[in-house]
Amino acid sequence: MDARTAPAGPAMAIELIGVHKWYGAFHALRNVSLGVARGERIVVCGPSGSGKSTLIRCVNHLEQHQRGRIIVDGVELTNDVKRIEEVRREVGMVFQSFNLFPHLTVLENCTLAPIWVRRTPKAAAEDVATQLLARVKILDQANKYPGQLSGGQQQRAAIARALCMNPKIMLFDEPTSSLDPEMVKEVLETMVSLAEEGMTMMVVTHEMGFARQVADRVAFMDNGEIVEINAPVEFFAHPQHERTKLFLSQILH
C-alpha cells in the first residue's frame, strides 16, 4: 500500500479529517477537520482544556487519535511505527517545557537527531547546528548544559534543535507559556523570523499579538472542537461565535 496518498507536491502539509480522540470516557477531540497548506501559519487558541494541545500532539502522533484520518506531508498516520518515525523526521516540535536533554550540551542536543536519525556525519551536523544556534542568537551558549541557560535561551535552543532536522513543518505547543515575561519577546521574535522564511507552522498559543502579526488563519477551539477559524483581521474584529467573543473578551483588555 502506498503511504503517500496525496499527489506529488501536495498542497496540504497537514490534513485532519473527522478526527476523534477520547481519554477514557472523556471526548477530547470531537470530529475535528482542518487543512494546513504548505507555507501556511495557523494559530490555535482556546481556553485551557479545550483540546488544542491534544490536537497539535496528534499531528506527530504523540497522542493517538481513535477515529478519522491524519495525513502529514502526504503520509497517513497509522499505528505503523515506520510511518510515525517518517512523519516525526519531517515535523519539528517545540514544547511548553522545552524538553531539552539535560545530560547533553546545547550543541549535542542539536546534533543528536541529525547524527542518529538522519545519519549526517558529525562534522556536518555540527556545522548546521552552529549556524542555527547563531540564528537564534545563542551560539555563545553552545557548549553549556541546558540547566545553565535561562528559560528564553532554553526555548530558543529547543527551536534550533528542531530546525537541525530541517523539518518541513514546525509545531509549537504553547512555546512561551512557561517563560518569564521578559523572555517571551525573544522567543516570539525567533518564531516570527521563522514564519517570514515561509515555514509551515501550527502554533498553540495565547499570544494574540503574535497571531495578528504572523498567522494566516486563527482557529478557536472549545470543548474539543474547532468553533471558528478565520483570517486574523476578521477573527479579532468580527468574531462570529458567542464562545469566541467571550474568550477574546477575557484575554484581550
Binding site: E85, R88, V91, N99, A162
Partner: peptide, 12 residues
C-alpha cells in the same frame, strides 16, 4: 517530556 522530546525528533 524527555520521552516526548526524543520521540518528536524521530528517534527510534
Amino acid at each position: 517530556g524527555q520521552f516526548e522530546g526524543a520521540m518528536a525528533l524521530g528517534l527510534s
